[in-house]
Design a protein around this nucleic acid. Structure first.
Length: 418
DNA sequence: TCTGGGGTCCTAGGACCC
DNA sequence: TCTGGGGTCCTAGGACCC
């Protein structure tokens, strides 16, 4: 059966989350910063109008912020994750076929509807707004890439009122001509430069380019984009996302670290987070990579990593921490000002399909029980159990000076009506 | 003085096998 | 002057996504 893809995308997601519980922010420029209050990762329309670019370091725009009373927030992932669930739950009521593509986007299959798709899109938009307070834009088309394009137009042209249905082919060519090549899903900065050099600067021109020529220069992924723009489905709706292949936990430090002990504390804390996530997803890791790095912006940058394989795949925090700390000893370099470290877990397997080792003496059932107990206790407490290896003071820990309350996930931060 | 984090897919090239 | 053919697996690096 023919599919109809709708891409529902939250407008300026993080900034809009901040507005839901703080209506005084409506109409004002709002930005949200990355971890450690480093770079701009979300901007309201008003902030975009001030020419605040995505990804720009906050310190570089200090004067714009001050002069225009820009409202600045640290990332509040507890709030954003919860708001995302609310939006996705709402969207699920409009189609049984839904693919949650990212924290702020979902594809729906709208095939088989008897009513007008534009009308249905408006209904989705109004309901999400009413139930969650989140503004969304919706693009509807025959393929995911075209739905993405429709969404881009819906967002940027007021006339669409936030919903554009491109399955009606009379406006398809016009929409594609209005889409710059770098805005096409799958076309990144490198490819865009090369395409423009060849005279291909919008989606319409790319669609009508010889697919074999595109494949030769931009591999099979480029060719798929051409076919998707022509309305041939290359990317299906993925309702059961394949299990992940890697799991990464890494952070910058708020201040640089020079002592090996502090570096070990940081890596232990990250290994601990990684273990929690593994267990939550019922996975175990076959290998762990630990990396350390000094600042990217200094001369003589130092980066190094070390990978070790486990004899038996594991999701035991003690084992992860022990291994990670051992790696730090070999990666540490005296005198280096470390700014970041992290763990990468790979060769992930479902925890009920771990290959045992004949010479393994560890009582794995016992350690699994311990992990389960700790996870259960932590799920019920605001102040979790921690490993001593993580350190007590953690001076390197990230700063969130301007984080809004976690309105929806903490009793003590719930909004109050006065 | 300050500069994010977490993923996937594809390809080329080397190692290795028969 | 000559020095096979064909296949798989693994890894690093590039490009892209949000």
């Amino acid at each position: 059966m023919k599919q109809i893809f709708a891409l529902v995308d939250c407008n300026n997601f993080y900034a809009s989350c901040e507005r839901v519980f703080n209506p005084g922010l409506q109409g004002k420029p709002v930005i949200v910063l990355s971890n450690n209050d480093g770079c701009v990762v979300a901007r309201s329309d008003e902030a975009k109008a001030l020419k605040i670019a995505m990804g720009v370091p906050a310190f570089e725009i200090a004067d714009i912020i001050e002069k225009n009373h820009v409202q600045v927030f640290s990332s509040n992932y507890a709030l954003y994750d919860d708001m995302s669930s609310r939006v996705m739950d709402t969207l699920s009521t409009f189609s049984p076929d839904i693919e949650i593509y990212s924290i702020d986007e979902a594809f729906l299959n709208l095939a088989g509807l008897s009513c007008s798709l534009t009308h249905y899109g408006q209904k989705i938009r109004q309901t999400v707004g009413k139930w969650t307070g989140m503004p969304v834009s919706i693009g509807i088309a025959q393929t995911k890439t075209l739905a993405k394009t429709a969404n881009y137009i819906a967002k940027h042209f007021d006339k669409t009122q936030g919903v554009l249905d491109l399955t009606d082919s009379t406006c398809l060519d016009r929409a594609l001509a209005k889409t710059p090549v770098e805005k096409i899903w799958g076309v990144g900065i490198k490819t865009a430069v090369k395409l423009k050099r060849a005279g291909i600067d919008n989606a319409l021109k790319l669609r009508d380019t010889d697919a074999a020529w595109v494949r030769q220069r931009f591999t099979v992924t480029g060719e798929r984009t051409v076919y998707e723009l022509r309305g041939c489905v290359c990317y299906q709706l993925e309702q059961n996302p394949p299990t992940r292949k890697t799991l990464v936990v890494s952070r910058m430090f708020s201040t640089s670290i020079e002592a090996v002990e502090a570096l070990k504390e940081a890596i232990a804390a990250y290994a601990c987070r990684a273990g929690e996530r593994l267990r939550k997803e019922h996975l175990a890791a076959g290998a762990i990579t630990v990396f350390v790095a000094t600042s990217r912006f200094v001369k003589n940058r130092y980066y190094n990593c070390r990978t070790t394989r486990f004899d038996v795949a594991t999701n035991n925090t003690t084992e992860l921490i022990r291994n990670a700390c051992k790696s730090i000893e070999t990666l540490y370099r005296k005198g280096a000002a470390f700014k970041k470290c992290g763990v990468v877990l790979s060769d992930l397997v479902p925890e009920n399909r771990i290959q045992p080792n004949l010479f393994d003496n560890t009582d794995r059932q016992k350690s699994a029980r311990l992990m389960r107990t700790i996870d259960t206790v932590n799920a019920a407490m605001d102040c979790p159990l921690r490993w001593a290896a993580e350190g007590l003071n953690q001076p390197w820990k990230l700063k969130f000076h301007r984080r809004s309350p976690r309105y929806t996930t903490r009793w003590d931060e719930i909004p109050k009506v006065v």
